[in-house]
Nucleic acid binder design. Structure first.
Lengths: 338, 338
DNA sequence: TGCTGGCACTCGAACGCACAGAGTGCCAGG
DNA sequence: CCTGGCACTCTGTGCGTTCGAGTGCCAGCA
C-alpha cells in the first residue's frame, strides 16, 4: 500500500500538472507544497509511484505527469468535490431562471456548463420513458387524419401525424381522448404500453383499426424518443487543450458530432451519483485522451436524463465536478417548478 | 484592365494554391500549367497582379498566394460552378429520401453537406414567416390554461402554453378555434397579424381577455421564431485548415457557437442565387479567414431558408458551390413532397 | 512593344553544434 | 528512513552556416 506521504506527493503532482500543463519535478514540488521532506525523498517516492503506474515521465530526465491510473486514484481518494462560490451559485440561478421553455432550459444549461468549466458541455434532453404524462391530446386535421400530441411533466412536447385506416367521428375521438387521458395521465411513460393494451376492444368494431393505429403511433413515439436528443456546446474550449493540436482535437470533434457516441457515453454513467471516466476508461477511441464527468438530473428525486462535460484528462477534477453537480441540481429545480 | 493571360495566371495560382496549400512560384506555375510563356514573363505578370492587390507574398522570396480580392475575382470571373458527378447526385437523393421528419431532413442535410464539401455545414430551418399555416389548434389543459399548436406547410410544429386571465368555456374555445382557422389556414405567416387583429371584438366581453392573450401568444410565436433555428455539423473538418491551428480555429469555433452570428451571416446573403463571401467580406471578425458559400432553398419556387458551408478562404470554390447548389435543390424537392 | 534568358540577391527553412538548465538515480552518511 | 551531494542524461534554445526556391532587374531579341 502507498504511504500517506506518497499519496500526498501524487496529489501535489496532479494539482501542479493541472495548473502548469508541464511535467513536474521533485524540486519544484517541494517548493510549491509544504511536504516537509527534501527533493531527494520525493524522488524516491516518485520512483515508487512510477513503478506502480500512477505517474510517468515523457522522457528520461523530465518531470513526471500523472497517468490515467494516477488520475483515477486522485479522483477516488484524494479529491473532494469543490463547492461553487456563492456568486457562482447566484449566477447559475439567475441565468437558468430566465428560460422560457424546455429547449431554452437545455440551451442555457449547455452554455452555463461550458462557461463554468471552460470545457465542452453535453446535456441530454429529459427522457420520455422516465417522465410522466401530463396530457395527451388528439386533434382531427382531416376526416382520416389525426394529430397526436404528448406533453410530459418536464415540459417536453412531442407530436405525430396519424393516418387513420377509416374516417373517425368527433364523438369517437372525444371518447378515445377521454379514456386515454384517464388511463395515462400522471403515469410514467414506461408503464403506458400495458395501460392501453386492451383499449381497442372497448370500441366499436369499425373504430378499432383507428384506435390501434393511434396507440401504435403513441408507443412508437415512446420508443423512438428513448433514443434521446442532446445538445452540446463550448467546443471552442477544445482549443485550450495542448499545442499538439490537430491530432488531439480532431477525433474529439468527430466523436462529439456523433450523437450516438455521446448518448452511449452518458448512458454508461452510473444511474445515481457522479461518474468520472478518465482517458482510456472511455470506450470510444477518439475520447481516449479526454475525461468525462457526468451526472443525472431530474425534476423530482429521480434522474430523467444526464449531463456532463468532456475535457482533457488533465482537468481540474474537483472544480469540474462541483460545477457539474451544482448545475444538475439547479436544472432539476427549474424543471420541477415549470 | 488585366490581360487575358494575367487572368489565366491568377486562375492558375488559385488552383495550385488551393491544391497544395503552399505559396506558388513562377517556375512551378509554368511547369504545371500550359501557359505558353516563360517563368520570367509570369514573374512580370505576377508583379502586376500583386500591385493590383490580387496576390501577395508571405515573405520576400517566397511564392505568391491569392488575396481575398484575388479570390473574389476568381469566383466572379474565372470559376464556373462544377456540377456534381451522377454518383454523387444519386447519393444525395438516396440519403435525403430516407428522412422521416423535418428535424431529420435538416440533420441529414447537414451531414451530407459536411461530407460532400469536407467543410463546416450550416442549415437553417425553414422560416415561419414565409411559410403558410396548415392548421392552428387550441387545447384546454386546465380551466384557465390552454395550449396553442401551430403547424406549417413545411411540417414544422410549434407549441406554446397560454395562461388565461379567466376560465374559458369549451364552446368559446371551439368557436375561437374555428374562427381562427378559417381566417389563417393557407395564409402566409407574415400576413397573420392583420388577419386576426379584430378578432377579440366579436367575442363576449368576458372572453375578450383570453382571446387577446391567445392571439398575442400566437403573434409572439411568430416573432420569436423569426429568429430562426439552425443546425451545424462537420466542425471536425476545421482541423484540416492549416498547421497554424489554435489561432485560426478558435475564433471560428466561437463564431459557429453563436447562432446569432450565423443567422446574421446567412441573412446577409442574397435572396436568390448563390452568395459567396470571402474572408474580410464577412462582417464577423472571427470569420475573417474563412469564406461562406450560401444559397436559399425552398419547397416551392420561393426560398424559405438558407443553407451553406463555412471553410477556409483557400477552398475549392467551383466544387463547393456545385455541392451547395445541388444539395439545396434536392432539399427543396424533399420538402415539396412531404 | 513584349517576351526571354541570365544573373545577382534575399530570405526562410533546415541542419549542426554547443550550452545551459532541469531533472533524475544512486550512494554514503546522519 | 531521510538527506545532501554528485554524476549523468536529456531537452530546449540560441547561433552560425548552408541550401534552395523565388524574386527583380536588365540586356537582348523578335
Amino acid at each position: 500500500m502507498l504511504s500517506e506521504r506518497r499519496l500526498e506527493v501524487l496529489r501535489a503532482i496532479v494539482q501542479d500538472y493541472v495548473g502548469t500543463e508541464e511535467p513536474v519535478g521533485s524540486k519544484a514540488l517541494t517548493e510549491r507544497h509544504a511536504l516537509g521532506v527534501s527533493p531527494a525523498t520525493v524522488r524516491n517516492d516518485m520512483a515508487v509511484l512510477e513503478e506502480e503506474g500512477f505517474i510517468a515521465q515523457p522522457h528520461t530526465s523530465a518531470g513526471r505527469i500523472p497517468t490515467d491510473k494516477g488520475y483515477r486514484l486522485f479522483v477516488d481518494r484524494l479529491a473532494g468535490v469543490k463547492p461553487l462560490s456563492s456568486p457562482e451559485r447566484r449566477a447559475i440561478q439567475n441565468f437558468l431562471d430566465g428560460a422560457v421553455d424546455l429547449d431554452d432550459v437545455v440551451a442555457r444549461t449547455v452554455r452555463l456548463l461550458a462557461q463554468l468549466t471552460r470545457q465542452v458541455a453535453v446535456v441530454q434532453y429529459p427522457s420520455l420513458t422516465r417522465s410522466t404524462v401530463r396530457h395527451v391530446e388528439l386533434l382531427s386535421l382531416a376526416p382520416a387524419r389525426l394529430m397526436l400530441v404528448l406533453i410530459t411533466d418536464t415540459g417536453r412536447v412531442e407530436q405525430r401525424l396519424v393516418d387513420c385506416p377509416a374516417p373517425f367521428g368527433e364523438t369517437s375521438l372525444a371518447d378515445l381522448r377521454a379514456r386515454l387521458n384517464s388511463r395515462v395521465v400522471g403515469r410514467r411513460f414506461a408503464d403506458v404500453p400495458q395501460l392501453v393494451q386492451d383499449l381497442p376492444e372497448s370500441f366499436e368494431p369499425e373504430d378499432r383499426g383507428t384506435v390501434s393505429t393511434v396507440l401504435s403511433t403513441l408507443l412508437e413515439t415512446l420508443v423512438e424518443e428513448t433514443e434521446e436528443r442532446l445538445m452540446i456546446g463550448g467546443t471552442a474550449n477544445l482549443t485550450r487543450f495542448g499545442h499538439d493540436f490537430p491530432l488531439t482535437i480532431r477525433p474529439v470533434l468527430e466523436a462529439l458530432e456523433e450523437q450516438v457516441v455521446l448518448l452511449k457515453l452518458l448512458g454508461e454513467a452510473k444511474e445515481s451519483g457522479m461518474t468520472v471516466r478518465i482517458g482510456h476508461e472511455n470506450a470510444h477511441e477518439g475520447l481516449n485522451s479526454t475525461s468525462v464527468v457526468s451526472v443525472g438530473y431530474g425534476s423530482g428525486g429521480e434522474a430523467v436524463a444526464k449531463l456532463g462535460v468532456v475535457g482533457p484528462t488533465r482537468m481540474d477534477y474537483p472544480g469540474t465536478m462541483g460545477a457539474v453537480r451544482a448545475v444538475a441540481r439547479y436544472v432539476g429545480q427549474i424543471l420541477a417548478e415549470s
